[in-house]
C-alpha cells in the first residue's frame, strides 16, 4: 500500500489563488486507508476550500489506474471540463494519472512516502524499497536493504552496536536478525552470499514494465 500524508493546507490554498472552480478527487484505496484521501478527507477538503466553487467531489477506487480514472471521471465529465483544476487526494502516481486523463491542472494535496505494510490503521511500515533486484530469498525473508538505514546489501556494517543498529539503537540491526533467522532455519551459508550493487543500468527512473504479447 502506498503511504501518504497530507500537505499543508495553506500551501495548497496558495496554489489556488487563480483557480476558482475545482473538482476534488480522492482515492478509495491506499489514501483511504491512510485517512488522507478517503471520502471523509474529500469532504473535509471541500469544506476547507469553501471560498472556491467546488463543482464535484469523487472517490475513485484506484486513481493511479488510468482505465479506472477515465471511466469514473466520465460520471462528472461536465464538471471536470468546467473546472480550473483538480485537487488530488492521491499518491503522486494517482495525481499524474489524473493529469494525463483530464489534461487539467492537478494540485497534489498529499505527499507520497513509501510502499507500506499495514499492521493496523495508523501503523504502516516500510518493508520493501522496490529496488528491482530482490534478495529476500537470501535473507530469510527480511528486506535488509529497506530495514537498514544505510541500505547495506552485505551487512552488518561496522557501526553495529552489539546486536543493535546505531541509527535506531532501540532496534536490532536487521543483519543480526537475518543472521539469527538463517541460523534457526539451517540456512547459515546464505548469510555470506554476495550481493552486488543494484544494477543501475536496469533500475534508473522512470522504470517501466511492458508486457510483450
Amino acid at each position: 500500500m502506498i503511504v501518504t500524508t497530507k500537505k499543508d493546507l495553506d500551501a495548497i490554498k496558495g496554489l489556488l489563488s487563480d483557480k476558482k472552480k475545482l473538482v476534488i478527487v480522492g482515492c478509495a484505496e491506499c489514501a483511504a486507508v491512510c485517512q488522507t484521501g478517503g471520502s471523509e478527507q474529500v469532504r473535509e477538503m471541500a469544506e476547507a476550500l469553501s471560498n472556491h466553487e467546488v463543482l464535484a467531489t469523487i472517490s475513485i477506487q484506484s486513481p493511479c489506474d488510468k482505465r479506472i480514472s477515465s471511466r469514473d471521471l466520465k460520471r462528472i465529465a461536465e464538471e471536470v471540463e468546467e473546472a480550473d483544476a483538480l485537487i488530488a487526494l492521491t499518491c503522486g502516481s494517482g495525481a499524474q494519472a489524473l493529469d494525463e486523463v483530464t489534461s487539467k491542472p492537478v494540485i497534489a494535496a498529499l505527499d507520497t512516502h513509501f510502499l507500506g505494510m499495514v499492521e493496523r490503521l495508523g501503523r504502516f511500515y516500510e518493508r520493501c524499497s522496490h529496488c528491482g533486484q530482490c534478495i529476500l530469498n537470501d535473507t530469510a525473508g527480511l528486506c535488509a536493504v529497506t530495514a537498514c538505514p544505510r541500505r547495506v546489501r552485505n551487512g552488518p556494517c561496522e557501526h553495529i552496536l552489539g546486536t543493535k543498529c546505531d541509527v535506531y539503537p532501540q532496534r536490532d540491526c536487521v543483519w543480526h536478525s537475518v543472521y539469527e533467522r538463517l541460523k534457526e532455519r539451517g540456512m547459515d551459508a546464505l548469510f555470506l552470499a554476495y550481493h552486488g550493487p543494484v544494477d543501475w543500468s536496469k533500475n534508473h527512473s522512470p522504470r517501466e514494465e511492458i508486457w510483450q504479447r
Partner: peptide
C-alpha cells in the same frame, strides 16, 4: 583494509 565490528555472530561472520 575494511572497518569491521565484533560482539555478535553476524558482525564476526562478516
Amino acid at each position: 583494509g575494511v572497518r569491521a565490528a565484533s560482539g555478535s555472530g553476524a558482525a564476526e561472520t562478516r
